[in-house]
């Protein structure tokens, strides 16, 4: 029983990290209509930055913060490439984000080499109802909860959030009421970078990260985001937690090498179901 509980809690932590990646995908897709395949790259950049900065002797906190900001800048640059030119279709932008992801490999290998890097996180563990859980995992869960609450407040209550939602709903009308749709798109990419970066610095202490870790991250994140039809944050969170728990259970009970297959399988099933219901990625033409 306590093994089950341990897997469950660890699975929730893994799911939270996936949720952060997925939330970045959702934010960017909601506002710009673009599926951002460079989303995993933001996490990798943040993870590698954090490990380097910590290696240089910067204290915890400052290193992670700087790494997350670096990821936000990476997000902004990706946004400039993908949606910076007015009139780029979401499909072309998608290809651009793929290109950015591949280009990022080269940059990352030059800067950090091709070996996986890790970073120390919070040490120690606590025992909850007979189940041991690492403090780092608790931190991941807490940060994710705060991030999702902040996102909900941001989109639900603030003017900027409303303007972003307006762009997502009807970019044509948004322009007409004086909203700079291009700037909002760039903002969404920066926000996506920030969320991806957050996931990166939290994951790196749990499993070492290398330049090509983005594939695992994006597959998981994409599966969760598709679960929420790429637009609904709460369902995305639920999907991510489900996925995290399923993968950890599989690993715990002896199918550790099949984690990625589980994510892919789930993603396929969800996509088929979503496609049957209605076009998941539908938007009024501009």
């Amino acid at each position: 029983m306590s093994a089950f509980l341990t897997y469950l809690l660890n699975g929730l932590a893994v799911g939270c990290a996936i949720a952060l990646i997925a939330s970045g995908l959702v934010v960017i897709h909601r506002v710009t209509g673009v599926v951002n395949f460079a989303q995993g790259t933001f996490a990798v950049v943040a993870g590698l930055c954090a490990s380097s900065l910590l290696g240089l002797g910067l204290p915890h906190g400052a290193s992670e913060l700087a790494a997350v900001l670096a990821a936000a800048v990476a997000g902004l640059l990706t946004g400039l490439a993908a949606v910076g030119r007015p009139g780029t279709t979401p499909l072309s932008s998608l290809i651009v984000t793929l290109g950015v992801g591949v280009l990022a490999y080269a940059v990352e290998i030059v800067l950090w080499g091709d070996q996986p890097r890790s970073a120390p996180g919070l040490a120690g563990s606590v025992t909850v109802a007979g189940a041991r859980i690492q403090t780092q995992h608790l931190l991941v869960i807490a940060v994710t909860a705060v991030a999702f609450a902040a996102l909900a407040l941001f989109f639900g209550r603030t003017y900027l959030g409303k303007a972003l939602t307006a762009c997502a709903s009807n970019p044509y009308a948004a322009r007409v009421v004086g909203i700079d749709v291009r700037r909002m798109g760039l903002l969404a990419f920066a926000l996506g970078g920030l969320l991806g970066g957050l996931a990166g610095v939290l994951v790196t202490p749990m499993r070492p990260i290398s330049f090509d870790s983005d594939v695992t991250l994006i597959v998981n994140g994409f599966a969760a985001a598709v679960f929420g039809a790429l637009t609904r944050p709460v369902i995305t969170l639920a999907g991510a937690l489900l996925l995290g728990v399923a993968e950890t259970m599989a690993a715990g009970y002896g199918y550790g090498s099949h984690q990625l297959e589980i994510a892919l399988g789930l993603m396929l099933v969800v996509m088929i179901v979503q496609a049957g219901r209605r076009p998941a990625i539908s938007q009024e033409p501009t």
Partner: peptide, 17 residues
């Protein structure tokens, strides 16, 4: 050309934000 997922009042307010 209305913003879905918002109320009528929010639709009118969004441009003023």
């Amino acid at each position: 050309r209305v913003f879905r997922g918002m109320t009528v009042r929010e639709n009118v307010m969004v441009g003023l934000h």
